Computed example of a mutant assay.
Amino acid sequence: MTIVLTATTAHAFGEGDTKNDTKGESDGNGSLSASTSSIRISYPSGGGGGGGGDKRGNLATIDPNWKPPACWYEPAFTPEQLEEFVDTDGGGDVGIHESWYGKRLWTDHYRDGKPADNFDLHAPTNSTAEGYEDYNLGKDGYFWRGVAPDPSDPESWDCGRIMFWVDAGDIPDDPHAPTPEMLAEYAYNEVKVPETEIELKPEAKSTVNLPTWVWLDEGTFKEVTVRAELPNTGLWAETTAKPVALHLDPGTADAETYPASGDCEINDDDSIGTPYTKGNADRTPPCGIRYLRATSGAPYRLTAGITWQISWEGTGGANGDLPDGTFETTQDMNVQEIQSINR
């Protein structure tokens, strides 16, 4: 679908003024891009930023219907900052799908009080945004803008207002205003967890009807906390991912898992399973797999995934849970018929 925005009588275009429906970048450093948020992310515990050389990746939610927020509104400029932006730049995203290039578009609405259209794709007609006098200089507050990490997401059209005024200390009365829960959901998408590198015995090659032991050393998996703060709102949230189980999928129906559910619980010392020791070949492992049929040609693809339980807390004592996440890795497993292994 192509959307063409046209000028109204209150929005006459001057020389070099353009208006479009795609994500724009402001001149220079892109200081008014609708795909860039001012939310600050930090990692209070668990090394969730992926530093220190460890291998980390993003969680995948186990709920296929859950997704992080597609769009929201947040503070962008004080009156003084907006005046400076218009005088020195004058090009950027006034809304998620509406970009203004040319100083006159900005001065008409934010300096000279002329109304402008919001861009409400899902409404029968665009609503009207009343204009402002002299950028609201002398008032205490912020001009808020819409933000969408992925402007191609159809749900990003739900935040159709152009940049609007909110008094200091207030949160706009809008279904897409930020909340602690929204920040928790945003933080969820920033959680980085260690790769699932399991220990096996035998390694990469098993034997029909004899168990393969699976374990992870203690201390490998610890809670990861991500904090999201939205400046100039007082809003924050911390999302914590707690490892609760290792799930094994042997890659074939011709196999049994230990335990039968395939879920190996995490021990009190943050280890999983029990390391294989000499003489344990015929014992049942607390965490492991027994293949019932040998591979023929292609190996089985063993999948090991850590399940992470997600909770959050935020401003004013708000708290709750989010869908569990998982991080999976796979490796080839060859299974032979000979019913013996090295002890």
Rank of each mutant, 00 (worst) to 15 (best):
R290V: 10
Y101C: 11
G28P: 05
V214W: 09
D321A: 12
T61H: 02
T307C: 02
N126R: 08
T212P: 09
G288K: 11
D89C: 07
C71S: 13
P202A: 10
N334V: 00
T274D: 12
P202S: 11
P64H: 00
S340T: 14
G262K: 06
I310A: 10
I96N: 01
I41H: 08
P180Q: 11
G160F: 01
T88L: 02
A148K: 03
Y300Q: 07
W100G: 07
D17W: 03
E229R: 13
W308P: 05
P285T: 13
S31W: 15
T179Y: 02
G314H: 07
C264H: 03
I96S: 05
F143D: 06
R161F: 01
S127N: 08
N189Q: 14
E203T: 15
F85M: 13
W157T: 01
E25Q: 14
Y258C: 00
S31V: 13
G314F: 05
Y276S: 00
A304D: 09
G138V: 04
E203M: 11
E83H: 10
R40Y: 10
R161L: 00
H176G: 02
S42L: 03
Y276F: 15
L5S: 02
E84G: 00
I3R: 03
P211I: 14
E218M: 11
G273W: 09
G30I: 06
L137C: 03
S340W: 13
D324V: 08
R343G: 11
V86Q: 07
K222P: 00
F85E: 03
A253V: 02
E313V: 09
T18Y: 04
I272L: 03
P79A: 01
R145N: 10
A34T: 05
R56D: 06
D321Y: 01
D282L: 15
G28H: 12
G53A: 06
I310C: 03
G314M: 10
L137G: 10
F221K: 13
G95D: 02
L183T: 00
E199K: 13
T284E: 15
G262R: 06
N126S: 15
D332V: 04
T212H: 08
F119N: 06
P180R: 01
D93M: 03
L246W: 09
T295D: 04
G57A: 15
E84M: 04
E181W: 01
A304Q: 02
L59M: 03
D332C: 03
T307I: 14
H176C: 08
V147R: 01
